[in-house]
Design a protein around this nucleic acid. Sequence first.
DNA 1: TCAACAATAGACCGATCAGTCTATTTTTAT
DNA 2: ATAAAAATAGACTGATCGGTCTATTGTTGA
Lengths: 210, 210
Amino acid sequence: MKATRKSTEEKLLLAARRLFCRAGIHATGITRILEEAGVARASLYTHYGSKENLLKAVFDTEANMWFHWFDLDLPGLECSARERILALFDLLEKWFEKEDFFGCVFINAVAEHEKDSAWVKDVAVTYRDQIISRLGALVGESGAKDPDIVTQKLGLIIEGAIVTAMVTQNSQAAHIARLTAEDILRCMECSPSLPEGSVSSATAAAMESA
Amino acid sequence: MKATRKSTEEKLLLAARRLFCRAGIHATGITRILEEAGVARASLYTHYGSKENLLKAVFDTEANMWFHWFDLDLPGLECSARERILALFDLLEKWFEKEDFFGCVFINAVAEHEKDSAWVKDVAVTYRDQIISRLGALVGESGAKDPDIVTQKLGLIIEGAIVTAMVTQNSQAAHIARLTAEDILRCMECSPSLPEGSVSSATAAAMESA
DNA sequence: TCAACAATAGACCGATCAGTCTATTTTTAT
DNA sequence: ATAAAAATAGACTGATCGGTCTATTGTTGA
């Protein structure tokens, strides 16, 4: 608990992070950020130079949240790797419960920016790789038979939980994701396919939709 | 296969749907839609009245895609309910493989609009409920012990697959989601918790992150 | 005390946006 | 063939945006 006054830089960063997620990046004007931060217009440009750089700084802080989870919070738990994987979903739940949770700034930013050749997507994918890599290390420790597939499954339900929580504005998505993670872990060493055969051939005929 | 020429209305709708997803809604100007549609400026306003109404029309077409899957494609398959659930992920994969797939317009729209008191979120949530309801009916047919939880799990991995496919631009997310769905279905009648106890208490201590 | 710096308010600029309007051409139906 | 309807190009408007600039006020450290 530092008693230090929040710096101008911090005030801008926090307001931008909140508004970019709550209202969208394009929809959030510089003026609104300045109002919420309680900071003068020129200060934004002396500290960050542009709205784009401010967004990059917001990306960094969001990535640091994830790195903090994987590099400090989860390793501090005295439990098995499998339990650490499940504990990740408790961290997600705490995140979703915050009053100013409005989705992941990476996902939201990608959603509202050009998907071909845009720096936003490149930055988001780079950070995503770093996060998935840490998740993969955790899965590796758990002794999964096919760690890559398990990692991809877990990454998918993490993203699903974030989006579900954003859209429904309900932190329960983390709990559902945790239950799903338990299913994945329970099936980790079982046979890779269902008793009944695949239906992928029967499905192919059913496609002519708009 | 109709040989009918595409109407002005359709051309606008298709261009808008593609651009809203590929580049974002705010980032897509009217002029760009008109260029891609090959349509005059005034035609947009005679047919739709405003950019907002055009977005609503795009929402309708995307919802109809889902309704077509649940109400026509999947019921047409001669297989068990469980297999129909899995077949949904094959439909998703076909969707992701389209060259102009850039995410779900509902998710993307929510991501870039105000999350408190905005019509965009309300419309998206309404359609989401209708889709989840159809998914729930399918799960009910499969004889799941706890159909509500299973439905929420499946809904979550569907959203996860869509976002993963959007961010990574890789249709393989549908396959991972299908494998996860198989895990969920396989665990459907098993005991609801892992052999080892929960770690939720041990996790609570690890939270002070930014 | 006073100079160097940081932050302030707010006018201002050029660009872009959604939407309107006019005048012209093309299509359609009879 | 011709009149009505639909679509066209493109100029135009008012509002908003990101970013710059000036002038003033606090704040800090020697």
